[in-house]
């Protein structure tokens, strides 16, 4: 199961990297989101998948699954959600003001 997850994470990361390298602003943001999800899945996988019964429900089981990674990932997802919202707004304002979402046209500086 872990091996499968690692492959899934690898695919998500490569698709995210591909999107990062495109020239459209929106695609770049989608790439960042995908990489974030990849990192979250990686966290879940590296902490070990399903090695015991659910924690906090009863005290009979011989071993319990680790609840900490899920709590951390939840925090990270919330933070990522806020960041994405901010990025989308910023990208929209930039698009409105510059009249383009092509990152190639947003290069360089006016004064150099």
């Amino acid at each position: 199961m872990e091996i499968l997850m690692i492959f899934a994470v690898g695919i998500i990361f490569s698709v995210g990297t591909y999107l990062l390298l495109t020239k459209s602003m929106l695609r770049v943001i989608l790439g960042v989101m995908l990489i974030a999800h990849g990192a979250h899945l990686m966290f879940l996988t590296l902490a070990g998948l399903k090695t015991g019964s659910p924690p906090l429900l009863g005290e009979e089981a011989s071993s319990y699954a680790d609840p900490l990674p899920q709590a951390l990932i939840l925090t990270a997802i919330v933070i990522g959600f806020g960041m994405t919202a901010f990025m989308l707004v910023l990208a929209y304002r930039t698009y409105k003001l510059h009249g383009t979402d092509n990152l190639d046209e947003l290069r360089g500086t006016d004064d150099e």
């Binding site: 974030a36 966290f43 990674p69 960041m83």
Partner: peptide, 17 residues
């Protein structure tokens, strides 16, 4: 900076693992 934060999570994952 957001991309580097994502790699931060990845690093935390490695260290936790």
């Amino acid at each position: 900076n957001t991309i580097s934060s994502m790699f931060f999570i990845l690093g935390v994952a490695y260290m936790y693992g």
